[in-house]
């Protein structure tokens, strides 16, 4: 009986507030936009009984999806989200790896402090961290002030409101997600493996490529998923740092919903985004599963 309560309370909560809402999204994506409240039709009218359900089912169609397929904007937004997420994941990896490596090689008494320094930004507002870059990247911002002062450039660079600013924003905010799994993989590596490799005739550099790097692969894969998946649906970063030409699907969805008030199309955009994300999510969970099994 107690077990039943224990299971059913969180279960019901999630069904009502997670599963059902998602089914509603699916349903709305098959409806038509209407000038009404709520702004879509048909709405289910249960007072008419079975007939009402039939009318409701009859009103559903794939029209919004055909619309998405027809309109270039959506295709481009999905593709550009994929591109931006992929490029920024790679850039995050380039920044994160040397850092994680340095952390794992630092003295034992320093490692907890370094770890805390990496995690600390997690606790500060995401919005504020993205906002901080606006003042740095703008035309009269600190980066341009600095570069002009050093004489590296003569005209200020235009970075804010471009894709470059979005890359920087994603790398900055998601960096800990990449550092932590790589660090975890490097940290548990047995130091005597490298000694063994050197003993068997490897140079330092080749020992790194033949031993360290392959052994940190699981961390790299996990980190890449942790950056790529949320970056795909990102809204705040393109909204604050990107320009009008920065196309990301999270932003398109937001605008479709709040500016155009086309809820059915926004829902269809959401459904497709989720379908795209399901592939990396499943791959990620497989990878985690495999890791857990490998560990015991």
């Amino acid at each position: 009986m107690k077990r039943f309560t224990l299971i059913s309370v969180p279960y019901l909560w999630l069904i009502v507030l997670f599963l059902v809402p998602f089914l509603i999204v699916l349903k709305v994506s098959l409806s038509d936009a209407a000038l009404a409240i709520p702004p879509y039709s048909p709405t289910l009218d249960l007072s008419q009984g079975w007939a009402g359900i039939l009318v409701w089912l009859d009103g559903l169609d794939m029209e919004n999806y055909w619309f998405l397929a027809d309109d270039n904007l959506y295709w481009k937004a999905y593709l550009s989200s994929l591109k931006i997420a992929a490029i920024s994941t790679f850039l995050t990896f380039l920044v994160a790896y040397p850092f994680a490596y340095g952390m794992a090689r630092a003295a034992d008494e320093w490692q907890p402090t370094l770890l805390m320094l990496v995690i600390l930004p997690f606790w500060t507002s995401f919005l504020i961290r993205v906002y901080a870059w606006k003042a740095i990247l703008s035309v009269e911002g600190f980066l341009n002030q600095f570069l002009l002062w050093t004489g590296a450039i003569h005209d200020p660079l235009i970075i804010l409101n471009t894709n470059v600013a979005v890359y920087i924003g994603i790398v900055y905010t998601y960096l800990p997600f990449m550092i932590l799994p790589i660090y975890a993989a490097l940290e548990k590596m047995d130091a005597s493996l490298l000694e063994a490799a050197e003993d068997l005739g490897c140079s330092r550099f080749s020992a790194f490529w033949l031993i360290t790097f392959p052994l940190s692969r699981q961390g790299i894969i996990a980190g890449s998923f942790l950056v790529f998946i949320p970056a795909m649906g990102e809204f705040v970063i393109p909204a604050l740092l990107g320009g009008s030409r920065t196309l990301m699907i999270g932003k398109v969805l937001w605008e479709e919903f709040f500016s155009n008030r086309d809820w059915p199309v926004a829902s269809a955009v959401a459904v497709i985004l989720l379908l795209i994300l399901i592939i990396p999510i499943i791959l990620f969970q497989r990878n985690e599963q495999k890791n857990r099994e490998a560990q015991g």
Binding site: G250, A266, L273, I281
Partner: peptide, 10 residues
């Protein structure tokens, strides 16, 4: 892993 925009919308 659900994008926030989808959670919010739903």
């Amino acid at each position: 892993v659900m994008p926030e925009v989808i959670t919010g919308l739903s």
